[in-house]
Amino acid sequence: MSELRELYQQVILDHNRKPRNFGKLDGANRTAEGYNPLCGDQVRVYLDIEAGVIRDIRFEGSGCAISKAAASMMTASLKGKTIGEADQLFGRFHDMLTAAGNGGAAAELGKLAVFSGVCEFPSRIKCATLPWHTVRAALAGKDEPVSTE
């Protein structure tokens, strides 16, 4: 598979076309906004947290296929997770995209492993991590928009 096909896998294109958990979450008790000033990707995440568990999560915004699919698949994988588990997943996802020799991290990421091709495209890594940074900001209760810069 070419690097490009590795990046734009069917799963990613599908989530880009039909993002899951897209739109505002009524009754959210945490929210944050993320912005990538370089390309204009913008995402807002909404979370409903109870007793340290992510009961529901949704997002809205606009951006490239990578950022949109990353947000869509992130919400799918975080629903029902504890905050501790979410942090752990973020760490693994981040390592897969940035650390050399990512095989180990990818193996533990399940469906999220489709993003492993992104590390071959340094200028696109921030597209994939933006929604995750935004969730972390929401969990930390930050009101200020998070920026990739």
């Binding site: 490239c64 296929a65 990578i66 949109k68």
Partner: peptide, 20 residues
């Protein structure tokens, strides 16, 4: 298709454009 994705695909065809 977002401009950023177009830019990446064109880059892989050797074509340097700006997206943003």
């Amino acid at each position: 298709v977002h401009a950023h994705d177009v830019g990446t695909i064109l880059d892989h065809a050797g074509i340097a454009v700006r997206a943003g």
